[in-house]
């Protein structure tokens, strides 16, 4: 596994560097690439991004720590971030968040034993009219209820089982 020299990312990296007059500006898009490669922003990813952007690894690590969308620990295959901010909470998001954790049998920020789901709450995701809602690996799922979530969770579990059987 690597970011540097990985053909999968070379065009993307080149594109990001072409956008800015200063290599430093590419640190955020490149951290996303490192996260895609390793599943989270680990030390190898930090080192590689630092080398590419010609920055000190300490600086890259501080960027990764400042922004919440870079994960500093490994997550389940589906990273579920439930908005529990005021607008969503007024439409039942706190209860939805609690019920989802109970259904998956995880604590806040925890991952299920099969490594499929990680659940945590986040601040406003700018989808307040479609609450309850969550972000699953950076894609929005809106107008949710536990019925829909249970069906979705079971579908993903069945997919995993199918993969294991194969």
């Amino acid at each position: 596994m690597a970011v540097i020299g990985n053909k999968k990312y070379s065009k993307q990296i080149e594109h990001h560097f072409s956008k800015y007059p200063d290599k430093r500006s590419a640190v955020m898009p490149l951290l996303y690439i490192a996260q895609e490669e390793y599943g989270w922003v680990n030390d190898d990813g930090i080192q590689e991004v630092a080398e590419l952007c010609e920055l000190d690894p300490t600086h890259v690590k501080s960027i990764a720590g400042f922004y919440t969308m870079y994960s500093e620990k490994s997550k389940g295959k589906y990273w579920l971030q439930v908005c529990t901010d005021l607008s969503c909470a007024l439409r039942g998001a706190d209860e939805f968040h609690k019920d989802l954790k109970a259904y998956l049998e995880v604590e806040e920020g925890g991952t299920t034993d099969d490594d499929l789901f990680t659940v945590e709450h986040v601040m406003c995701l700018a989808a307040c009219d479609n609450a309850p809602m969550l972000q699953c690996n950076f894609h929005y799922m809106e107008n949710l209820d536990m019925e829909k979530m249970k069906a979705w969770v079971e579908e993903k579990r069945a997919e995993l089982q199918k993969e294991l059987d194969a």
Partner: peptide, 11 residues
């Protein structure tokens, strides 16, 4: 950056 609680117009 649309991040103010309750704002979802720019999206």
């Amino acid at each position: 950056d649309e991040s103010e609680t309750g704002t979802f117009k720019d999206r």
